[in-house]
Amino acid sequence: MGLHHYLILSALLFAVGAAGVIVKKNIIAIFLCIELMLNAANLSFVAFSRYLDQVHGQIFVFFVMVVAAAEAAVGLAITITLYRNRRTLNVDDADLMKW
């Protein structure tokens, strides 16, 4: 297992996540896909960190986890307020404003 194995896996995960964000309609599913993309980046960080034999990348991953948790808190709160007002979790129904 060399560095490039990890990088390819991370690129694939990132692509799956990005495709999911575009294809999925459910807000929670989109949110999960974004988390997948963040963790794909984390995998790259850890792999690079190991390859370069330094800890910077691993420390970065901690920061990303904290940020992801904060984002999840705010994101779910926003989703709940939308659900209270509109009774929907489908992004296609959030269409009050266009063009």
């Binding site: 964000v21 984002e71 926003i78 939308l82 959030a94 404003m97």
Partner: peptide
């Protein structure tokens, strides 16, 4: 509902950009 929608779009695309 407009404000909710604004926040939701900003949040989803903003975190997409963050990734």
């Amino acid at each position: 509902a407009h404000s909710n929608e604004s926040a939701l779009k900003y949040f989803l695309l903003g975190s997409f950009a963050t990734a």
